[in-house]
């Protein structure tokens, strides 16, 4: 099984990647550091998976080279599981991409990264409710310090396919 790390530019995908794989991809505090993809391996409870750090994309309608690469990666890996990394302090924007990936028929796990920043800004996110609506695992993480990464790794296999209609229905109530 392959795992794709998806998300907007500068939401800390590379940091999550480093934490998961123990790899040494350089992280920078500005968007667009990763213009090519990086591969690594992650071991979860004895099983080894290949994980790909996909370049940052705002949506799946490509506007620059990094986004083109991102879309290509998705198409080439139809069987993959996607970890959507979302900046918890700007959750709506990240959900847009996550929903697109869900609609395309990929099992998804959501990593709410920069949880510490969101807390600093006094933004409260009801993780359980969000999990219930989306019916995918949602894990708050702070990749820089490594908090939540273990839980994220353990919950990757809970990712399953969801129909978007179901999400609409649940959100409506």
């Amino acid at each position: 099984m392959r795992i794709l790390l998806m998300g907007h530019p500068n939401v800390g995908k590379s940091a999550v990647f480093n934490r998961l794989t123990g790899a040494r991809v350089t992280e920078s505090n500005y968007p667009g550091t990763t213009v090519d993809y990086t591969k690594g391996r992650v071991r979860i409870e004895g099983d080894s998976f290949e994980i790909i750090d996909v370049p940052g994309a705002f949506s799946l309608e490509p506007k620059d080279k990094a986004e083109e690469v991102a879309v290509k990666m998705l198409e080439e890996n139809k069987e993959a599981v996607a970890i959507c990394v979302i900046d918890a302090s700007k959750m709506e924007r990240g959900l847009y991409l996550a929903l697109q990936v869900i609609e395309k028929g990929y099992p998804v796990v959501i990593a709410l990264n920069m949880w510490d920043v969101a807390q600093d800004k006094n933004i409260e996110i009801d993780v359980e409710e969000l999990e219930d609506i989306l019916t995918v695992p949602v894990v708050p993480v702070t990749a820089i310090s490594g908090e939540g990464i273990r839980e994220l790794a353990l919950r990757i296999k809970e990712a399953s396919l969801v129909k978007i209609e179901k999400i609409i229905e649940k959100a409506g109530n």
């Binding site: 959750m91 929903l99 600093d120 800004k121 006094n122 933004i123 009801d126 989306l134």
Partner: peptide, 28 residues
């Protein structure tokens, strides 16, 4: 597939139910 507007509408609904913005303190 949803179109752009439908997707944002859905996100709006989800956000309303899951995000609470606390009083934002302007820090130094």
């Amino acid at each position: 597939m949803l179109d752009l507007e439908q997707r944002w509408e859905l996100i709006d609904k989800i956000a309303k139910r899951t995000i609470k913005f606390g009083k934002y303190r302007h820090t130094l």
